[in-house]
């Protein structure tokens, strides 16, 4: 990998960064949904044969693939050092979803997602998206 000298490339323009951030947001929502749906499918403990016909399992796989495509599209528009850390938004969605289904949030979870959201804001601004 180190054999080829890296090509100098200017930072991505602000509009591209904004598009990349929007794509990552949808990507992380898709991944969180995929995990939830796959968990339902895998917790049923039926055989492999039943699993590949399980609509939840298939929906989970489809969501995973769609999220993968969104990640690649996000990487096309935004810088790697902006797009990759924003994947941590998945943690935020998980905590918010558990709140939505009536689970009580612990203080550390609230503090944790506050820190992540502050970090996401800083990383997003650093890409010129503010």
């Amino acid at each position: 990998m180190g054999s080829k000298a890296p090509r100098p490339r200017p930072s991505e323009p602000a509009g591209a960064t904004r598009r990349a951030i929007a794509l990552v947001v949808f990507c992380t929502i898709g991944m969180t949904l995929a995990q939830a749906v796959l968990k339902v499918a895998l917790s049923r403990e039926t055989g492999i044969a039943a699993l590949v016909l399980d609509p939840f399992f298939l929906a989970g796989l489809a969501l995973m693939c769609a999220s993968g495509v969104l990640l690649v599209l996000a990487l096309r528009h935004g810088e790697l050092s902006v797009v990759h850390p924003l994947l941590a938004l998945g943690f935020v969605w998980v905590v918010l979803a558990s709140f939505a289904i009536g689970e009580r949030l612990a203080w550390k979870e609230l503090c944790g997602i506050a820190l992540i959201m502050a970090g996401v804001a800083l990383v997003g601004r650093s890409g010129g998206a503010a």
């Binding site: 850390p85 943690f91 502050a118 996401v120």
Partner: peptide, 21 residues
């Protein structure tokens, strides 16, 4: 990619948030 202090701080805040959770 040019990573200035703000982006490093953002990345470290994200890591800190995951640690806290």
């Amino acid at each position: 990619e040019q990573i200035r202090i703000g982006r490093w701080c953002g990345i470290l805040l994200i890591v800190a948030g995951i640690v806290v959770i």
